[in-house]
């Protein structure tokens, strides 16, 4: 494996990935209010079991405490935040400004996203921005970091040092373009990828094969995304209501096969088994565990999947 080992930033996530060890990330959603304790508590629960923590940016377009402020709270706790940034709500001026704001607190990781359409959230009548797209945001951060320049061409005093990530959804359509779209993100400058939750492992493997065929496996670190199912209801909801989500019938059948009070446990089991299976897939360099409003289960999953203890770097 010829993946580069030279460190570009002080990011702990970058260090772990480039040391060749499997990385583990997770995510916390900020509260719908200004109580920082909520996010701190969530982070506290998982901090010893993950290498870095994503903070979502008004996920599903529902207004929440901002990702940047939440990341700062984590940083002040001595943790390693990953700043999620969507291009839905801010133009290039605001995006670059927030990147500098994050950099001023030495936040070393960023995840560049489009963001769900605002029609899903609490302000469906809002305007959207989409001045640049997620690929162009990746390019922007790389330009700021590597060349010390703003998009407008001026120099940045003390450029940001951020390890740049992006998302990939192997399950959205058209499938044939999904690996090529990843190639574009890598070309734009993405250094790590967190995937959409994987339930359909065969389809993920097929995608990874295409990614490998495009020669991307030694150019980008792919963290496989997993989300434990809390119940059969959640599985059905994700299958039918969440765009770009692929939940095979077997998962639903398996969850329906156990009594209601055992479904959560079964969901965790499925999640751990999925991680075990994905560990064997060439090019999987770590895991992104999205336990939605179920952060307390992250330690159990990490331990169960044999990913504990986390490396010290």
């Amino acid at each position: 494996m010829s993946i580069q080992t030279e460190l570009k930033t002080p990011s702990k996530l970058e260090k772990i990935l480039k040391s060749g060890q499997l990385a583990v990330t997770s995510e916390c959603g900020p509260p719908r209010g200004s109580d920082a304790e909520v996010i701190k508590k969530k982070a506290q629960m998982i901090k010893d079991y993950v290498d870095a923590i994503n903070i979502t940016d008004n996920q599903t377009s529902v207004t929440r405490l901002c990702s940047l402020a939440s990341c700062i709270h984590l940083k002040l706790m001595g943790l390693e935040p990953i700043l999620q940034m969507v291009v839905r709500d801010r133009n290039r001026i605001a995006l670059q400004s927030d990147i500098l704001g994050a950099a001023s607190f030495d936040i070393y990781n960023i995840l560049c996203l489009s963001g769900d359409h605002q029609s899903f959230g609490d302000n469906p009548t809002a305007q959207n921005v989409f001045d640049i797209d997620s690929m162009q945001l990746i390019q922007t951060v790389r330009l700021m970091r590597d060349e010390g320049k703003f998009l407008g061409g001026d120099n940045i005093l003390r450029p940001p040092k951020m390890f740049v990530g992006a998302a990939a959804n192997p399950f959205a359509d058209p499938f044939e373009i999904r690996a090529r779209r990843l190639a574009k993100k890598v070309k734009a400058g993405a250094e790590f990828i967190q995937t959409q939750c994987i339930y359909n492992v065969p389809r993920f493997k097929e995608w990874m094969k295409q990614v490998g065929d495009l020669g991307l496996l030694d150019k980008v670190f792919i963290l496989a995304g997993v989300t434990p199912m809390k119940s059969v209801g959640m599985a059905k909801y994700m299958k039918n209501k969440v765009p770009g989500m692929d939940v095979p019938d077997e998962i639903i059948k398996r969850l329906s096969g156990v009594p209601k009070e055992k479904q959560a446990e079964e969901g965790i089991k499925i999640c751990i088994e999925t991680i075990q299976e994905l560990k064997e897939v060439e090019g999987v360099r770590g895991f992104h565990i999205m336990a939605i409003e179920w952060e307390e289960k992250v330690p159990e999953i990490v331990k169960g999947a044999g990913l504990y203890p986390r490396p010290q770097v």
């Binding site: 769900d116 690929m135 734009a188």
Partner: peptide, 16 residues
């Protein structure tokens, strides 16, 4: 494109 993406499609594109 609902997000006027220049490098789409986003992860929400489903069955066309």
């Amino acid at each position: 494109c609902a997000k006027r993406l220049f490098n789409g499609p986003c992860g929400g594109s489903t069955k066309g």
